[in-house]
Simulated assay, not measured.
Amino acid sequence: MTRTKATATGFVAVLLWALLALFTVGSAPTPPLLLNTLAFGIGGVVGLVWAAVTGSAAQMRQVPLRVYLFGTLGLFAYHLMYFSALRLAPAAEAGLIAYLWPLLIVVFSGLLPSEKLRAGHVIGAILGFAGAALIIGGGGTGLNTASLSGYLLALLAAFTWAGYSVLSRLVGDAPTASVAVFCIGTSLLSFPLHLMFEDTVLPATMVGWASIAALGLGPVGFAFYVWDIGCKRGDIQLLGTSSYAAPLLSTLVLVAVGISAPSMTLLWAALLITGGALIAARASFSENR
């Protein structure tokens, strides 16, 4: 697979992740750890099918344990924080903050061998964080304390996923199908913690169950396998900057279905985060000419 095809493959995950907030909201009132258990259980099955179809199941036995531990903890931590954030704060606003991870990927990737951080990446980062600050500050009306915990969890989630994506290049060369073990590990790790810390609350409607199934099949299933290919074989800076389409698409979906109300704060935050992406993307394109 060429670097260009791998980058395009990774971008399929971005399109699927644009639906992550929608399905997370639809899965309410399922608590975060239980949602991790159910969605990643489905995602793990998707991975096993992927391994069977691609003939890579045998390669999974050669993967070092440290790689499986790294992947499992990365998926577990990010989604626990993300699901919790969307339970504690407005979905569109928390989702936009969590979607700072593409910008952070660009910044962090500048630390990798053979990669270079340019001025455009830094400017894009400043704009992106300005958009997040606008949300947390309540659009200039004062600190939004009611949703602050959710916003902070979303910010931590962004740092976690960016770090996971960049460091995945350094922890070892593992087949993409090994992500199935990450998903199954996340599900198995989440279940006992759910029993310890949460009440079991399952969806009461078909919409809730369909949302959980859609999460497992798409944003926390197939998306990880194509993302893994993009991160390891594609242009990670270009992939990271192209990922800025996700926050705008995610916000538009939430507004279109009536989950989030349009507002000037939401508009400006989305424009700042997306604008930062465009500037950072231009810097990457200039570097690759």
Rank of each mutant, 00 (worst) to 15 (best):
L65F: 13
L254H: 06
A204N: 13
G138H: 07
V107N: 02
G139M: 04
A57D: 04
L238S: 04
I236F: 03
V253F: 12
G74S: 15
L252R: 10
I97H: 01
Y99Q: 09
A39I: 07
A245L: 15
A210D: 00
L272M: 13
L167D: 00
L117F: 03
T200I: 15
N36Y: 01
S178K: 02
D235F: 04
P219Y: 03
I135A: 04
A58N: 13
L155P: 05
V25M: 07
L34N: 07
A21L: 10
L86A: 04
S286Y: 13
Q59K: 15
G142I: 11
A280F: 10
G124Q: 10
L195R: 14
A223V: 06
F11K: 02
G55W: 08
L252S: 12
S168F: 01
V253N: 03
L153H: 06
G234I: 03
L80P: 00
G71W: 03
V220A: 01
S211A: 15
Y82V: 08
W268P: 00
L20I: 13
A8W: 08
G150P: 04
V226Y: 00
D228W: 00
S149W: 10
A85R: 09
Y164R: 06
H121A: 14
T265H: 05
V179M: 09
S211C: 12
D173P: 00
G142Q: 05
G139Y: 07
Q59C: 06
L195G: 13
G275A: 11
W227N: 03
Q237P: 00
D199T: 15
S242N: 11
M81T: 11
L156M: 14
S250Q: 14
S147Q: 11
N288L: 14
W17E: 04
L38A: 11
V63P: 01
P32H: 03
M264V: 15
G218W: 01
G128E: 08
Q62M: 13
G41A: 05
S56G: 06
G74Q: 03
A283K: 12
F159M: 14
G221Y: 01
E198W: 12
F197M: 14
I97K: 05
P219D: 02
A21T: 09
T186G: 13
S109D: 08
A177V: 07
F224M: 01
L272K: 13
R118C: 05
D235W: 01
I184E: 03
P64V: 12
P175Q: 09
L16D: 01
P64C: 09
D235P: 01
A89D: 07
T7E: 01
A174E: 07
I136Y: 10
L271A: 15
A213E: 00
V106C: 06
P219C: 04
S84D: 03
I279N: 08
A214W: 03
S165E: 03
S56F: 05
G234E: 00
A132F: 06
A245N: 03
A92W: 06
S286C: 12
A162T: 02
V253D: 05
S168T: 14
E287R: 15
C231D: 00
L111Q: 11
L38H: 03
A57F: 14
V122C: 07
P29W: 10
S242E: 02
S56H: 01
F83T: 09
A28R: 15
G120W: 13
L111T: 14
R282K: 15
P113L: 04
Y78F: 15
A132L: 08
F83C: 08
Q62C: 08
G55L: 12
A213R: 00
